[in-house]
């Protein structure tokens, strides 16, 4: 549990509301924790799947009376079907879910809860927050804001930056909002913000175009580390030397490694770690085994990953 930062743990304690009922009597019974997450279609979800499967192995090894079932789905509709199948096949003691979309999954999750299942929601909250017993999420606004603060400080509140954004979603909007809100109070000019769909290739292309369009760029922010890799390649090809920083976000292992190696262009990153799914699964397992109350909302902060703390965020075996 080292990857939960202190503030989150504090929240965890402060947010506990009620003790789990009759937990001692049921201690010997088999507990089923279902985990429903998106399929690994790109880097970040790949990380989610990896961490969920790690959690499954570790928890089942440590607590023989807990059965963790991980189910991945390629789309929101498939996830709804998966929920129905999971609930129909066995009695679920707890459901840990990273919903594709809030709107579409709220109803189906409510159905599962009606059978007395403990509901833990990760990353994207449900439309009706009263359904979720436990909510673990990263802070997308903080991802953008913290990066912007660091960048503004390093540039001395002066300069020109370009931004690459992902796919039009709430996550993307929040990160961009966090970033631009901070930059408004500085003399830094945001030259351009365009979509590159969280895709390396498109980020490479877009960065090439930015370089052609703007003769002077002081820093680049790609709101996801996958895109950052494309950006770095384009910058390298152009041979342009005025670009001081190219930053990403998400905590991709290649980028965390660059931070560890004290890369001058990418000295920091901001986590939005896929490992939050593991956090949530452990918390749910904890209340079944240790009778530790685990209710409430837990927002993981987005502290800067620096060369000093990078090893906490580095999972060399994870695909992300």
């Amino acid at each position: 549990m080292t990857f939960i930062n202190r503030r989150a743990l504090g929240l965890l304690a402060a947010g506990s509301i009620a003790a789990l009922m009759a937990s001692t009597a049921m201690a010997q019974e088999k507990r089923v924790i279902a985990v429903s997450i998106p399929a690994a279609t790109h880097g970040w979800t790949g990380g989610v799947v990896y961490h969920a499967e790690q959690a499954e192995k570790e928890i089942e090894a440590a607590f023989p009376n807990i059965d963790v079932i991980v189910k991945t789905s390629p789309s929101a509709t498939a996830q709804v079907s998966a929920l129905e199948d999971l609930a129909a096949a066995q009695t679920l003691d707890a459901l840990v879910i990273l919903p594709f979309t809030s709107e579409e999954l709220t109803g189906p999750v409510e159905q599962v809860k009606a059978n007395g299942t403990f509901i833990a929601v990760v990353d994207r909250g449900l439309t009706d927050p009263s359904i979720q017993d436990l909510y673990v999420a990263g802070d997308n606004i903080a991802v953008g804001a913290n990066t912007a603060k660091w960048m503004a400080e390093q540039l001395g509140n002066e300069g020109k930056v370009v931004v690459l954004r992902g796919i039009p979603t709430v996550i993307d909007d929040e990160r961009i909002q966090g970033f631009t809100d901070v930059m408004k109070d500085t003399n830094i000019e945001i030259l351009d913000i365009q979509y590159a769909n969280w895709n390396q290739d498109e980020a490479f292309t877009l960065m090439q175009d930015y370089l052609a369009k703007y003769p002077q760029i002081d820093a680049v922010w790609a709101n996801d580390d996958d895109m950052l890799l494309g950006v770095l390649e384009a910058v390298k090809q152009s041979g342009r030397s005025e670009i001081k920083y190219a930053l990403g976000g998400n905590g991709m292992k290649d980028v965390v490694k660059m931070v560890m190696d004290e890369n001058p262009m990418t000295p920091i990153s901001t986590p939005y770690p896929p490992s939050m799914i593991k956090t949530a699964i452990y918390m749910v397992a904890g209340q079944f085994t240790g009778q530790a109350p685990m209710r409430g909302s837990f927002k993981l902060d987005a502290p800067l990953i620096t060369p000093e703390n990078a090893d906490q965020f580095y999972f060399p075996d994870s695909p992300f």
Partner: peptide, 12 residues
């Protein structure tokens, strides 16, 4: 050689 990697979004 452009990006040095294959990902699930390559060629999407």
């Amino acid at each position: 050689p452009r990006l040095g990697a294959a990902t699930p979004t390559t060629g999407q």
